[in-house]
């Protein structure tokens, strides 16, 4: 679905790790160090990471099959979920028990798998929301416009600058809900940049994005690195991972099973096993119910995994809305 034909191959950052590339390998300059992080959902260990370090100033891809615990790890690292055990630091600060909003204030911002553009705010308002330390966000000083007018103007200038870079400046007064799925992804990323983060964590930035926009999204991610930010992203599209990632971490069944630079990791037996080993015989048509067929134990397993993946969307729509289908939602909002 992605294409890299139009641009030159990006410059890869190398020499990130110390010693052999193996799960949990030490990095030269880690921005996140996590130890012994576990999280259980109803008896199932969703995340069980002994040790992992995320390199600074590089693009790190977190890959793995559905239900591998990637999003859960994201949630744990960003304070959106609490682990059962473990410690982890961001930029030298321990993050245990720190609420998500404080983590974000420290310079570690994230996006979500299901795009969370704030639909009934305009594109510009979405952007302004990303700026930190706003005087006007205090309930008392908000009442007196002179206190925050100047800052607001500055924030707006900055927002327009970033919007122009993401080619969304013409849409600044549109409701975010009126954007396409890909544009919303772009907006979410642009919004995250408003806070001048040190680490940007992108959860499936390419999911549901129109192929025409893929290239521009890739370029934006590469730009983050050029501007000195570190990037950690979850992705399924191996093509894209190979193209832009400097380092790849592979998860399966909650554990980290492999680490290394993209070329090496893709050859790793553990990775191939993680992706194909468990479900290679399963006909996806049977899983989704489109093709009637006998549900084998493997189908049941896969269903259970999908269940874990989409479990969060319980009761999110009045009924049986398909929440992962971005395009369907777009139709609704128009």
């Amino acid at each position: 679905m992605s294409s890299n034909s139009s641009s030159q191959s990006p410059v890869k950052t190398t020499g990130l790790h110390i010693g052999d590339a193996a799960p949990g390998v030490a990095k030269v300059d880690p921005i996140i160090i996590a130890d012994n992080v576990t999280r259980t959902f109803g008896g199932l260990k969703a995340v069980d990471v002994e040790h992992v370090e995320i390199p600074r100033g590089a693009i790190t891809a977190l890959i793995g099959p559905n239900g591998a615990g990637k999003t859960t790890l994201f949630n744990l690292l960003t304070g959106f979920d609490k682990p059962d055990t473990g410690t982890w630091t961001f930029d030298g600060t321990r993050l245990n028990g720190i609420p998500a909003f404080r983590v974000a204030r420290m310079g570690q911002v994230r996006t979500f798998q299901l795009t969370k553009a704030l639909g009934l705010l305009t594109v510009l308002e979405n952007m302004k929301l990303g700026a930190q330390k706003q005087t006007g966000e205090n309930v008392f000083s908000s009442l007196l416009k002179p206190l925050w007018r100047k800052q607001e103007v500055e924030i707006e200038e900055r927002a327009m600058e970033i919007l122009a870079r993401f080619k969304l400046d013409t849409k600044k007064d549109d409701f975010a809900a009126s954007l396409s799925g890909g544009q919303r992804k772009l907006l979410e990323m642009a919004r995250a940049l408003m806070s001048s983060p040190k680490l940007v964590m992108l959860d499936e930035p390419m999911a549901g994005v129109n192929p025409a926009l893929t290239q521009s999204l890739l370029d934006h991610i590469l730009n983050l690195k050029t501007e000195g930010m570190s990037v950690l992203f979850v992705e399924h599209d191996m093509h894209m991972v190979r193209h832009i990632a400097d380092w790849v971490i592979v998860m399966a069944e909650g554990r980290i099973v492999a680490e290394g630079d993209p070329e090496t990791v893709m050859q790793d037996a553990a990775v191939i096993d993680a992706y194909l080993g468990s479900h290679q015989d399963v006909d996806l048509g049977v899983v989704t119910g489109r093709i009637s067929g006998e549900k084998t134990a493997e189908v049941e397993d896969l269903l259970a995994e999908i269940d874990a993946e989409v479990g969060l969307t319980d009761s999110s729509a009045y009924i049986a809305d398909t929440p992962t289908d971005d395009t369907a939602k777009e139709e609704d909002t128009k």
Partner: peptide
């Protein structure tokens, strides 16, 4: 208003 739309997104922006 951002919270009304999606509080997790606003939380992720440090509010």
């Amino acid at each position: 208003k951002g919270i009304r739309e999606d509080e997790d997104a606003v939380r992720a922006l440090g509010k």
